[in-house]
Design a protein around this nucleic acid. Sequence first.
DNA 1: TGGGATTATATGGGCGTCAATGGGTATGTG
DNA 2: CACATACCCATTGACGCCCATATAATCCCA
Lengths: 153, 153
Amino acid sequence: MDLFVSKYINKIDKKGRVSLPSSFRNILPKANRNEIILYKSIKTPSIEGCGVGRLKEIAKRINNLDFFSEDYDDFSTSIFSEIITTNIDKEGRFLIPEELKLYASIKTEAAFFGQGHYFQIWDPKKGQKNTEDSRRRLLKEKKSLRMMLTQQK
Amino acid sequence: MDLFVSKYINKIDKKGRVSLPSSFRNILPKANRNEIILYKSIKTPSIEGCGVGRLKEIAKRINNLDFFSEDYDDFSTSIFSEIITTNIDKEGRFLIPEELKLYASIKTEAAFFGQGHYFQIWDPKKGQKNTEDSRRRLLKEKKSLRMMLTQQK
DNA sequence: TGGGATTATATGGGCGTCAATGGGTATGTG
DNA sequence: CACATACCCATTGACGCCCATATAATCCCA
């Protein structure tokens, strides 16, 4: 499996270290397995993260926006200038910068949410609520979620 | 046969392991025969499962949504973070995560129901009742189930 | 074709490995 | 020196891998 999936809640120790879930580590390419990038989510009070390889993909997405729109500047400023690279130690742990922890209200525990090609880090309670809210929004259009899951080919 | 069909009831041992019915295992592609994905059924208190190949199709579909839309986040949260991948050991057994067992009220036995391209895991009693209920609904709504079943071609 | 032999499946349990976590110490940078 | 971070080692519990058994299914040959 080469996608970030499932949810994990890990502890942040006194030194600020937290384990990246093992299944997430395995997705990172062997070449850059000891480095990830982190940035503030645009839409939610959470941190988003992924392997360094995905930077190119993000750049492409932003490039697809209208170059002269305000969104273009806003996205490229908020994402690129705020991206932080962080190293993973031999035990699979890394440090979440203070500023990002503040942004996501993360204190002693970090909830990792798989999002396919990237992942999100939430305060466990906030993350739980976000999951419920987003599920509720989708259920309003029940058909679309069901189709997404069961549609053939 | 490349469809999940029929019903099986297997025991969950002390370690939480349960055998995936052999006929279900044989449907998984040889390449990914030792891994399946599980998630909560949307409409019933049961667990749904299938091979990982299906997940990749879902990922592709989500990836085609507008990256900056709310729907994109809702789908990827509801799907990727709620999906669990689990490994199948050499004897054909796997672990059902505690959270999913709770959701489906599964304790010591798991009932596997083939559903074509996927399968469901129920508490045996609940699953039995669900089968009866859905048959009853069918009989009521379509006046003649017999016609449907006996109709040729 | 009957019945013993072989194989497959479901199940149980021992044990080594790995993941998550904690902490001590060295290195480094202001 | 004070603080931050990287490296090393230790602990615990969960999980994967291996081996064993019982029952069921299949095969094979006289």
